[in-house]
């Protein structure tokens, strides 16, 4: 069974956050496997009725990002054009990553983490994006790679005009 020391996983996530904050998107893309899935959802509250007619208070996920490595690469290419207005000028960001838990399942590390992203732009209020994440991290030729990320945004109604940063 593959070993995933927590320290190594934490360093990996911190390095990822730093690459994004430094806008080193090409290096960031290398942290994903070629068959990676990248999903961002928000959660709604919903009443449902079971087949027995009992009311329950459930939750429902609304997909906001449903990306592959190819579409993530396209998003990065777009950011490099002169016409990506949402990131022109580039936002200043800081990602604070915390509450890291690692659960190894055979050759995959299930990694839970929370992230708070502060995004600052000229003359605008600072946007705060809060998400809780579940990653599947694998080891490929000694290096850790993200095979699947699922990030869940906290607010059911987003109070920000766009999500122009990666989560």
């Amino acid at each position: 069974m593959e070993q995933f020391p927590r320290q190594e996983i934490e360093d990996f996530l911190y390095r990822e956050a730093r690459l994004l904050d430094e806008r080193n998107f090409d290096k960031w893309l290398e942290m994903f496997t070629d068959d990676a899935e990248y999903i961002v959802v928000s959660t709604k509250f919903q009443d449902t009725v079971s087949s027995e007619g009992v009311a329950t208070h459930g939750k429902r996920e609304i997909i906001i990002f449903d990306d592959t490595k190819a579409s993530l690469t396209l998003r990065v290419q777009r950011l490099k054009t002169k016409y990506a207005w949402a990131e022109d000028p580039p936002s200043n960001t800081v990602r604070v990553v915390s509450n890291v838990l690692v659960e190894p399942v055979s050759n995959v590390a299930l990694v839970f983490s929370d992230v708070v992203i502060y995004k600052a732009r000229e003359e605008a209020d600072i946007d705060v994006i809060i998400a809780t994440r579940k990653d599947e991290i694998v080891r490929k030729k000694e290096e850790l790679k993200i095979r699947r990320r699922e990030a869940r945004l906290i607010p059911p109604v987003l109070n920000i005009r766009n999500i122009s940063v990666f989560i």
Binding site: I63, I64, D66, D67, L74, R78, A84, W85, A86, N162
Partner: peptide, 22 residues
């Protein structure tokens, strides 16, 4: 749906820029 989410919605590559110019 995947294509829609890539292009429109709060994270869509079209919509991000609409919201910015507005």
């Amino acid at each position: 749906a995947k294509k829609f989410e890539l292009e429109f919605g709060p994270g869509g590559v079209f919509e991000q820029d609409d919201a910015e110019v507005w």
